[in-house]
Design a binder for these strands. Structure first.
Lengths: 205, 205
DNA sequence: GTTAGAGCTTACCAATCGGTCAAAACCGAT
DNA sequence: ATCGGTTTTGACCGATTGGTAAGCTCTAAC
């Protein structure tokens, strides 16, 4: 058959698939894949379970759809790290973007974290084929900055890990942060200042 | 009744309870509470499912036993942070201890992370009643160090978060780290050097 | 070696899991 | 109004879940 049997989705299709994915993001990000149930997703989406299965081929289909959506946006900030920009400013901008993502997309962060936490059964291929080259490329960029004296000597690999860890911490450990900071409404701004200062001090030659 | 109806556990009791808890740590840390099954734990422990339930009151009992064991050892490095020691050395020693724990007790780290990740349903009381006071106390200690000029100005709360995040990252995201570093056998030493340099630069007045 | 109790297993249970199916309800174009 | 296709539902299925009942086996103290 000629590959053109893809109908454009109807209005209802778009709405309900969106509802399901949003509900599934809630459920998967807080219970993990095995801990989540179709009934929970159905209830969160305001639809019946068989109706969920009308729009998706099954639990796994929903999960991989969610992950595929996520992985693109997740590596985007690293992609846009500009080799031709000013070294320190580029790094600090990257930190800031990651921190804002932790605030604005905490569910996505937790979904990814939970997936890695349990051994990344479904994202290991992505890690090896997509993230790995991107990681190596940006490590090389940072290394040239260091070699040119624009940044203080630093291991690019562990620098990136530190950026990921410190920023995503505010999404993945949000409950703990919230308790220990007693719901301080300025916590995001304080965190931004702290990380800015930390990486500035680390990287200023 | 006089409170002394606690028999000392037999040799077999100690051995099998230990086997079960070790197996359960494996299973819970990689699948989360809801994702783990008693059959998995039983198989990993080399015992039958009903036999598991002979030693524990149920799935939840195993889980809380594991968490109670964990929480003590988890806050221990922070407890031993010595207010009378030399400021920077104390912090760096704390970082080093946390990093070594990430290497030596990755399952415990992932168990805790997974619990926080899903909203900490079973550890929120601990966070509020035990960790919170300890956190405030050590924040105060760091603040006095800053005030006395022994450390560069820093937000103690976010400093501690950064230490937790960067060290635990190597346990919780071990799969990703392993892929991106191509199984580099020196990764632990490199991480130690990097974190040492980072926090030294951040905190040296 | 006997025996009382600790340890263990087989068989089973109700509840919940992901998923199916046929029929009903709905919708938009005519 | 009607008709064809889309959407939705209630009833149901086999597999798996956490947990139980009852009896068998082994161990340790005498």
């Amino acid at each position: 058959m000629p590959d053109g049997d893809v109908k454009k989705p109807s209005r209802i299709q778009r709405r309900n698939r969106g509802l399901i994915l949003d509900a599934a993001l809630d459920v998967f990000s807080t219970h993990g894949y095995r801990g989540a149930t179709l009934d929970q997703i159905a209830e969160a989406a305001g639809l019946s379970k068989p109706n969920i299965l009308y729009y998706f081929d099954g639990k796994e289909d929903i999960h991989v759809t969610l992950l595929n959506q996520l992985l693109g946006t997740w590596q985007d900030p690293l992609v846009t790290l500009n080799p031709d920009g000013e070294a320190l400013a580029e790094i600090l901008c990257y930190v800031r973007r990651k921190l804002d993502m932790a605030r604005d997309l905490p569910r996505e962060s937790r979904l990814f974290a939970g997936e890695i936490l349990r051994g990344a059964p479904r994202v290991t291929p992505y890690l090896a084929s997509d993230l790995q080259p991107l990681f190596d490329e940006k490590c090389a960029v940072i290394k040239t900055w260091v070699d040119k004296g624009q940044l203080a000597p630093v291991d690019p690999r562990h620098l990136i890990f530190s950026i990921w860890a410190t920023t995503q911490h505010y999404a993945d450990f949000a409950v703990q942060v919230k308790v220990l900071l007693k719901d301080d409404p300025d916590s995001h701004k304080d965190a931004a200042r702290h990380l800015d200062a930390m990486f500035t001090r680390l990287l200023t030659p």
